[in-house]
Simulated scan of single mutants.
Amino acid sequence: MESRPLRYFVAVAEELSFTRAAERVGIASPALSRAISGLEAELGVRLLERSTRRVTLTETGTALLTDARGALVALDAATQRARRAAGVAGGKLVLAVKADVEGGLLEDVLAAYRAEHAAVPIEVVFTGWREQPGLLRSGEADVAIVVEPFDSDGLDAEPLLSEPQVLALPTGHPLAERPRLRLADIEAGHQQVGTGSHVYVRHGAQRPQFGDMVQMLRQIELGRMLALFPVSLAERNARPQLTWRSVDDAPEAAFAVAWPQSSQSLAVAAFVRVATAVSVGRNSSGMADVE
């Protein structure tokens, strides 16, 4: 089976319109219709029910749609990796990290990796919160530093380090007057914006909008929310309008290095080995508390 008619089928199945699907994939509607008919003939099944008013998926079409999406994602990921490897002599490694949320490991890991025999040029891609697993699966990144738990479907991972989380709150907030806190102190006047979230708002309030770490910290400074962060992030974000407080029973932030299970890259293996070694040294030296 060729990938092109499979892409056409996914487009029609998602749009439920031959006209919209044809515009999406850039071919004429009659040609798209013929391609779908050819795919049905090749498979010996009916995938779509067509009428002058609507297009619907058959039960077989619904089953194929799930597998087709997965197959196309895998194919696109392989294509991305091959093109990237061909673009630089010896290939390159794309590392995905959330800016400032990498346990303070990034600089040391990069320095140690460059000294490795199997090292290749490395590109660091800064992502949004928990975007790294998707980039690994799509082939847009080769390796990532992530915070656990994360969506590990199709990925392997090695733990790196764990560190305390501290509370960021606006200077002058009543809780800022206490040297140490517990989660119950936060929850007395605030609620999490979602299960397992590290963001807290006043009871009944909505989660404020923010797009990156700078905006997030600014929302805290304005008193619109509180948030737990790894202590390494707090150490790099001292701001006069922010106060950081230890929370004795807050869960620790656990970092890991993750990569696709299908990867056979020596460069990825070298990066994982280096990241693990650097984290062992960091764990043995300990980290400072933030007051």
Rank of each mutant, 00 (worst) to 15 (best):
L242I: 15
L93A: 06
V109M: 07
A227I: 03
L48I: 11
V290S: 01
G139N: 08
R69N: 09
G223F: 10
A28I: 04
V214N: 12
F255L: 03
F255M: 03
R46H: 11
G154P: 06
A277M: 00
A86I: 05
M287G: 10
I220N: 07
D100N: 14
G223C: 04
R245L: 14
E59K: 12
P230I: 01
P30M: 09
A227R: 00
E187D: 08
D249A: 07
V272H: 00
L160G: 02
G134Q: 08
V10W: 06
V97K: 07
A31P: 07
D248K: 12
L228Y: 09
L75K: 11
A78S: 12
A71E: 13
L226C: 05
R207L: 03
E116H: 14
T127D: 09
F229K: 02
A269C: 02
T79G: 10
L161E: 01
I186Q: 06
G90V: 04
N283S: 14
A96T: 10
V247P: 13
N237E: 08
L222F: 00
L43Y: 10
D151M: 03
S138N: 12
V45I: 15
R245C: 13
H203Q: 04
V109Y: 01
S263W: 01
R46Q: 13
R20K: 15
R7N: 05
A115S: 15
V166Q: 05
E131V: 09
A119L: 03
R207D: 00
R236C: 06
A31K: 10
E116Y: 04
L106A: 04
Q215Y: 06
P30V: 10
G128C: 11
Q165E: 15
S279N: 06
P179D: 13
V201D: 01
Q261K: 15
S263E: 09
E49Q: 14
V94Q: 03
E291C: 02
T60Y: 02
R34I: 10
D108V: 01
L217S: 01
W129S: 14
V274S: 05
R7E: 14
A256S: 15
G286H: 07
R180Q: 08
R182E: 11
E102M: 04
A35W: 03
G70P: 01
A99N: 07
G196T: 09
S152V: 06
V193M: 00
P174I: 03
R34G: 05
F229M: 12
A269P: 00
P230A: 05
E252R: 14
R81H: 15
P170E: 11
Q215D: 15
G91R: 08
G26N: 08
E23Q: 14
A270Q: 02
V45K: 14
L161I: 11
M225S: 03
L160K: 05
A227C: 13
V12P: 04
G91H: 04
V257Q: 04
G87Y: 00
L32A: 03
A234Q: 05
N283T: 11
V124L: 09
A115D: 15
G61T: 06
P30N: 05
L183N: 10
A234W: 01
D212G: 12
R218Q: 13
G281W: 04
A144C: 09
L155M: 03
S29N: 07
T243I: 02
Y113Q: 11
Q261I: 07
E40Q: 15
R182N: 04
R180T: 09
D289W: 07
P179K: 09
